[in-house]
């Protein structure tokens, strides 16, 4: 199970990466493992304004569907359209090619409440 050090993590198993003035969001290796083979990803529309904690995407596997929450408030500026054809990228490359969407935060900060890799690892392993 991978827990890259350069990312921040939420309790709902999203990872967040700061990329200049936007943050990229995806699901963690632990999350994809729990879900099993992903068959479909429902992404938010570019331009949507979201609040932290909003359910803005859905990841479906054969037997479950999980909501994905916005870790920060802001505007959705880009989504990973490749996932439409290749939802399996969430399984094969959760931290890279399987990124889901990018948000431009409405205010700086907001990421402090998220966990670092070590804290998330402990959290995930205790689940």
């Amino acid at each position: 199970m991978d827990y890259p050090d350069n990312l921040k993590y939420s309790k709902s198993h999203e990872w967040v990466r700061q990329d200049g003035d936007t943050v990229a969001v995806g699901i963690t290796d632990y999350a994809q493992d729990q879900l099993g083979d992903v068959v479909f990803v429902e992404l938010p529309s570019v331009g949507t304004t979201v609040s932290a904690g909003d359910s803005i995407a859905v990841v479906e596997s054969v037997k479950t569907a999980s909501d994905i929450y916005a870790p920060v408030a802001g505007e959705v500026v880009e989504v990973n359209v490749t996932l439409g054809d290749k939802p399996e990228l969430l399984n094969s490359s959760p931290f890279k090619e399987g990124w889901m969407f990018k948000i431009r935060p409405s205010q700086s900060g907001g990421l402090e409440t998220l966990m670092n890799a070590a804290a998330y690892r402990q959290f995930a392993e205790s689940q």
Binding site: V39, F40, E60, V62, E88
Partner: peptide, 11 residues
């Protein structure tokens, strides 16, 4: 039929 490929049917 035997066990079916559910993943293919979903993807």
């Amino acid at each position: 039929v035997r066990r079916l490929d559910e993943l293919q049917a979903n993807r």
